[in-house]
Write a protein that binds this DNA or RNA. Structure first.
Length: 575
DNA sequence: GCCGTTTTCGGCCCGACTGTTTTCAGTCG
């Protein structure tokens, strides 16, 4: 049984309970349990066999029992029963903005509306107007919302959102009415996928700033506009919230809107126990006066905590660590020394070796690892032996011309169906390093795929396992693989695991990084660049690495060129 | 449904905005 299946079921139960009108805290328990399970590194079988499941905070007797039932039978009676009491379409209807469980319930019970299509029809017949709490505007907004759901999946890559958000923040900072402005929300927490953009600002004349913001050229539609909060939709379809408070409240607002929701809940509960009340306006004592805090650091200090970096604020152990002064010193972009996994025009890249190496020099790298595709990768112009020799000659010439950077000759070798690498032994030994990746036969079963990749890890020529799950965010599901076994094999054989920094991949997922780190597996943050601009994707990889609690010491390419070479050599001595 | 250095029962974060309302419910983050 797959852990992701029970995670989906628990999340869905949470929604169904809301629809049913159950105690909201009960619903929260289920979504919490799903989130906690998602962040646990072990697979379902291990969690149950080692009895670790019952030690997880937030999973109690009742939910634990349900997980056991699902693991043993592949079914969950409670879920089946709950699910069958509502038409499937109701869950879809919840994707419409500003339409929540309460109103969906009314629509279902009073009008018999069971799906988005039926809802649209009911709107056109003005049937919503007869319902209590609904009026002309609600009906219009629901129609607009349906249109929005139809047009977009309502999810965006962090790179797309970051691009838009940075433009807006720069515009705000450029105004003399604005004291502070920053990205907040899940984008600041460096989530790989975001639903919207949150921006916070401080000003003494918020109305003027709101006008400036709402009239920005990237704004397509104003959905909400108040004195301290506005919500707009951009031309690219992303929704943006802007909140503005006076300067003295700014750090509280920034913290509040950075979230996550669960982090805020936990922190406010902590404040409450200390006799304080926390909101976006301040941290208030019993006398109703706010404690002055100049920045987020002072807010955490007031709560007896070390400063928690935004990336860690998921209520996944960061508050406990901050209390015990054991937060990691997170990796920063300037700590990366080398850029590994770079494609050139020899295979499917668009820039020459020299152009890519020059780009790496300009980014301040002290070494670069060129790795074009291997011979079986026909779709990507993979290199046969003759083409390799041509490429090596060219690399030698570029190396002479640019002595300030060390160039490693590598390859991104396909992992063949049987787990072998894509060249004979005599060629494999000529590479400085090898990134081994799965690029074909994605639909293997979990057992076969796991075996295939472990075979590749066992190969002493493999330096780094590339994009370990093959997922494409918002595009393609990861292939079936037992990551726990893969990580164990990597740890056993001293193979590094890639954190592919391409914003469509960000693979290995951050939820597994903390575990990999604990197992002592070096993580290599690689741009997988196919063009000069792709080199800069490392920034997204660093964001995810930080989210996964990684420090410089956990990352392979923070080491200098000599240490990187030694790592590759040590691996090969296993032959 | 979960949890406990106030508690094994009774709590569970807090506020903005909208649309429908004459004071508030629903939704969102």
């Amino acid at each position: 049984m797959k852990k992701s299946d029970i995670i989906d079921i628990l999340s869905e139960i949470a929604v169904l309970l809301e629809l049913k009108g159950e105690n909201p805290f009960k619903s929260r328990s289920y979504s919490n349990a799903a989130r906690i399970l998602e962040s646990a590194p072990e697979d379902l079988t291990t969690l149950i066999q080692t009895e670790k499941l019952d030690t997880l905070k937030g999973i109690g007797e009742s939910i634990s029992k349900k997980i056991h039932e699902f693991a043993e039978t592949g079914e969950l009676a409670y879920y089946n029963e709950l699910k069958s009491s509502f038409p499937q379409g109701l869950l879809e209807m919840l994707r419409i903005p500003n339409l929540g469980p309460k109103r969906v319930k009314v629509l279902f019970e009073k009008l018999g509306v069971k799906s988005i299509a039926e809802l649209e029809y009911a709107c056109h017949e003005n049937r919503l107007l007869t319902l209590p709490g609904f009026g002309v505007k609600s009906q219009d907004n629901i129609l607009k919302g349906i249109d929005f759901v139809k047009k977009s999946a309502n999810q965006f890559l962090c790179s797309v959102a970051a691009e838009e958000a940075e433009i807006l923040v720069a515009a705000l900072r450029g105004s003399d009415q604005v004291r502070n402005a920053s990205i907040a929300g899940s984008l600041r927490r460096r989530k790989e996928i975001v639903k919207d953009i949150d921006i916070v600002a401080s000003s003494t004349s918020p109305e003027r700033v709101m006008d400036l913001f709402c009239s920005h050229e990237s704004v397509e539609e104003i959905l909400e506009k108040g004195a301290t909060k506005s919500n707009v939709r951009l031309r690219r379809g992303i929704s943006v919230d802007l909140r503005i408070v006076p300067p003295e409240s700014y750090p509280f607002l920034l913290h509040h809107l950075t979230g996550s929701k669960n982090h805020n809940i936990a922190l406010r509960a902590r404040a409450q126990k200390m006799g304080l009340k926390m909101s976006e306006w301040g941290l208030f004592g019993t006398d109703g006066k706010s404690l002055a805090c100049a920045d987020e650091n002072e807010i955490f200090a007031a709560l007896g905590l070390d400063e928690i970096p935004p990336e860690l604020r998921e209520d996944l152990g960061e508050i406990e660590a901050a209390e015990k002064h054991s937060l990691p010193s997170l990796l920063t972009e300037d700590q990366l020394a080398g850029i590994i996994h770079v494609h050139t025009a020899h295979s499917d890249g668009i820039n020459t070796v020299e152009e890519m190496v020059t780009g790496a020099v300009q980014m301040g790298a002290t070494y670069i690892g060129i790795s074009d595709h291997s011979q079986s990768a026909l779709y990507a112009g993979g290199l046969k032996e003759i083409a390799l020799e041509k490429q090596w000659k060219e690399i030698d010439a570029v190396q002479k011309k640019l002595p300030q950077i060390r160039i490693f000759k590598g390859v991104e070798s396909d992992i063949l169906g049987d787990g072998n690498l894509d060249y004979p032994e005599r060629i494999l030994r000529k590479f400085d390093f090898i990134v081994a990746s799965v690029h074909s036969r994605f639909n293997m079963g979990e057992e076969e795929m796991t075996k295939r990749v472990i075979t590749a890890i066992e190969n002493p020529h493999t330096t780094i396992l590339g994009h370990p799950t093959g997922r494409l965010l918002l595009g393609r599901e990861p292939f079936q693989i037992n990551l726990e076994k893969i990580l164990a094999a990597a740890a056993r054989h001293g193979v590094a695991i890639e954190l592919n920094a391409n914003p469509q991949r960000l693979d290995l997922d951050w939820r597994h990084l903390k575990h990999a780190r604990e197992m002592g597996i070096p993580i290599s943050i690689n741009p997988d660049a196919h063009s000069l601009t792709g080199l800069a994707d490392t920034r997204y990889g660093v964001g995810i690495a930080r989210k996964g609690w990684l420090t410089a010491a956990d990352v392979l390419n923070t080491r200098d060129a000599g240490a990187f070479a030694a790592f590759c050599e040590k691996r090969r001595r296993a032959i």
